[in-house]
Simulated assay, not measured.
Amino acid sequence: MGCLGNLLWFVCGGCISGLSWVLTGCLWCITIIGIPVGKQCFKFAALSFFPFGKDIAYSGGAGSFLLNVIWLLVSGFWLAVESALIGTLLCITIIGIPFGLQHFKLARLALMPFGSNVYTTF
């Protein structure tokens, strides 16, 4: 079911969400200081392209908190708004509810990506 969900997700809008993360990662990688942030964006772009069968564990310390605040002010807010709006639109229909819930998961991730780990669920 996860493979079919990922295929439908990619065709019906996951591509747009993933490309947003890739673009954000490229912009962060322009500066040397932003390269670790850009690498994190590319990791979450892969999650955004194919989110079914994966889950996110949130943890972190003071360094993650500080980096999350900078991230939120620079680019995280807009990625979260994008995912929340698309998720809301998808939840209007019964068929779109699983896709909308995935967008809400990505919106939460866009607010605090540092200190988060992605792992595969079976």
Rank of each mutant, 00 (worst) to 15 (best):
W9V: 02
T93Q: 11
F44K: 05
L90N: 08
N68L: 09
G96H: 02
G115A: 03
N6I: 01
T121V: 14
S83I: 04
L85V: 15
S75H: 08
G87T: 10
Y119A: 01
R108Y: 13
T24S: 01
A80G: 15
L90W: 13
K54E: 10
Q102K: 13
V81Y: 07
L19F: 00
G61W: 03
V11Q: 07
S20V: 06
S116T: 15
F104N: 06
V22M: 00
K43R: 13
F77E: 04
L72E: 11
L47M: 09
G60F: 05
C91V: 10
S116D: 08
L27W: 10
L101S: 06
L79E: 15
L79H: 08
N68I: 15
V69T: 15
L79A: 09
D55Q: 15
N6V: 04
L8E: 07
E82Y: 11
G14D: 11
F114N: 07
G76T: 13
G87E: 10
F99S: 12
T31C: 13
A80H: 12
L67Y: 02
L101T: 06
I70R: 04
I56R: 03
P98D: 14
I16R: 12
L72S: 10
I56K: 04
F104M: 06
N6H: 09
F50Q: 14
C26N: 04
I70W: 05
L109H: 01
C91D: 11
V81Q: 11
T88P: 06
L23A: 12
L89Q: 01
G87L: 08
I94P: 06
A45Q: 03
L106G: 01
N68E: 14
L67S: 09
Q102D: 13
C26F: 02
F65P: 01
R108K: 15
N6K: 11
L90S: 10
L72I: 11
C91M: 14
P51R: 12
G14Y: 04
L47R: 05
G5K: 13
G115R: 07
L79G: 09
F114Q: 06
Q102T: 09
I95A: 01
H103R: 14
I86F: 10
A80E: 09
G38P: 06
W9H: 03
K43T: 15
G34H: 02
K43F: 01
G63A: 13
I35V: 15
L67Q: 08
N68S: 00
L73M: 15
F65D: 09
F122H: 15
K54M: 12
A110L: 08
L67E: 02
L109R: 04
W21P: 03
M1A: 07
Q102I: 09
K54W: 08
Q102S: 14
Q102P: 01
F10N: 07
G115W: 03
I94S: 12
S59F: 03
L89G: 14
W9R: 05
I95L: 13
I16N: 07
L8R: 05
M1L: 12
V74A: 12
G63K: 10
N117P: 06
F114R: 02
V69R: 01
D55W: 09
I30V: 15
L79K: 05
I92F: 11
G53P: 11
I95Q: 04
V11I: 14
I95P: 08
G100C: 09
G61N: 10
G5S: 11
H103K: 13
F104P: 07
L7K: 05
T121D: 01
C3V: 13
L101I: 08
